[in-house]
Amino acid sequence: MSYGAWIMLTGSLVGVTCGIVGCFLILRKMAMLADAISHTVLLGIVLAYLVSHSLEGIYMLIGAGIIGLLTAFLVQVLDSSGVQSDAAIGVVFTSLFAFGVILLSAFAGKVHLDVNHALMGEITFIPWNTLTIGGMDLGPSAVWMLGSVLLINLILIFLFYKEIKISSFDPALASAIGIPVMFIHYLLMSMVSITTVASFDSVGAILVVAMLIVPGATAYLLTDKLLVMLVISAAIGVIAAIGGYYAALVWNISISGSMASIAGLIFAMTFILSPKHGLMSKIIAKRSIVAEQS
């Protein structure tokens, strides 16, 4: 496969994986918590490296998973002890992230990771960092990592679909009928954590939030069905990735930046033009009501 094709595949995998998980974040009004987790997993990655002395995917996933859950847990604890929830997120997020940055700078010589890379990602290097097993070149390791995370997420969503749905829509009824709402919450937060880590290398901590939130928010405007929302969101992720790649080629700009920008552009267009909830349709509807009345 060509260099460009690998980049587009990587970007598309980021788009699909983030887009699907992101829908649940939108529906549960947890965009801020996702933002927090996408930053605190940096700490997870650094700790995983310091413990395992390896930058292999599996250690990163475990480290990020643990710190992601810790983030969600600490926010929950502060929240239920009376701290306002956005303040709780702010406190936990900045403390853990800062700790991650400190560790990273203290062990800068040993960790082959720099803050800039972690924040911005570097999708252009992805195709050269390949996975080789037994001397066989299996393609970029980021693709394998993203593919595995996507598969894990899809399996979890498939298995727990109705539990996730009811505890997102009506948590009170869900726990009344015996569905472990908190377990589902932490399950989703784990999915967010591993999704973030897998996407880290390619788009970095800042833009992964855009890929998590924007496609889901757009899909929310376009459909009234949860399943359709998941599909649309994933599709928008792919369009943003491929469109972003070509835009970056044409204007010679950052690939991950233009991916996120395209996603933002799609959102803006949808927000204005969507037949269901769009600005235009609302204005037109208002006009026609006024016209009817006069």
Binding site: L27, K165, S168, F169, D170, L173, D224, K225, L226, M229
Partner: peptide, 13 residues
Amino acid sequence: PQRGSVDWDFPTN
């Protein structure tokens, strides 16, 4: 539950 306890914009029928 009280009707106001859920988000009626949730995408479902």
